[in-house]
Amino acid sequence: MININDLPGYDDAAPLLAVDNLCVTFESFEGEVAAVDGVSFTVNPGETLCIVGESGSGKSASQMAILGLLSTPPAIISGSVRFCGIELVHAPQSTLFTVRGSGVSMIFQDAITSLNPSLKVGFQIAEVFCARTGSDRASGRKYAIELMERVAIPDASHRVDDYPFQFSGGMCQRIMIAMALALNPKILIADEPTTALDVTVQRQVMELLKSLSKNADLALVLITHDLGVAAEQADKVMVMYAGRTVETGLTDAVFAKPYHPYTQALLSSMPDVTNNFNRLGIISGSPPVLTKLPEGCSFRPRCQFAAPMCRLNRPQLFVSGPSRASACLRVNDIFKKKSSNV
């Protein structure tokens, strides 16, 4: 078994995950579609990063690209993804095989279909562990029970020999998590882990992820469109729109005072119990078609603060406050002035 430490480029001092100017482009009949357009972020040990955005904003595509899960004839990936200094973009398959599971693991939206229907869950959980460490089935089974107990599946020693169809959706997601944790990864990417679950189960799964990240020093990258989840879980939040990062910063700061009209609009469309149950805010229009992005700022057609200058060029992310950045040209006009008035 190759250890991550033996891979070329491994560096203890480097950030756990450093994504720099990641672009994912797909060839289509209407030309190239930039699903992810120049996304950068870093994740440090034990940290939780939340990526929020609408459907089609490039959240999942960017994370799939990190693990090399996109097949590259249709997708074109550029930029850099470094895990502990190891470059993952266009990395050889052997590097990816080593990093997946033991460095970066991923869980998916629909846990029931993400489990192999014809294999016992215990086998699936311990499969990679057995393959990498050369353990036999018996010790793999024991390890699977241990992991199932860690993710709080009741009666794990009996259920280890059950098939996925004998579990509920929430339990399947726990099994997915157990599977992802089998090789003690340093980062867990969770791609909308609670979307297919009902609310009480959502809560349990989120609590589980939270406690795992706290106890095991596991960094979490949480993809979600649930701002409530983001507010509760994340240390840092990154808002994506049309393949680009529009705002990023520490969760509390961003939620208390957004520096981008899109973030602000998203927050105002959340129900708020302190708000006398007024009508929810809406974002008029619909997300742009990625082949026909509007000139200048992608959010301009839906932005209530749009000005002629927004049409001129697509705003880059620039520092807009302590450890935060926004991609709005008018950030000073709109947000900072308003805050000085208040």
């Binding site: 693990l67 599971g101 998916f108 279909t113 993400s114 489990l115 192999n116 990679v128 599977m179």
Partner: peptide, 28 residues
């Protein structure tokens, strides 16, 4: 293209293992 194969890939399974252990039992 199924979700479970993608999940297996993301856990670090190699292609031989995926074909034998994940795809074969399901198409058996």
């Amino acid at each position: 293209n199924s979700a479970y194969v993608q999940a297996a890939v993301s856990q670090g399974c190699k292609s031989g293992r995926i074909i034998l252990r994940h795809i074969l039992p399901n198409v058996m």
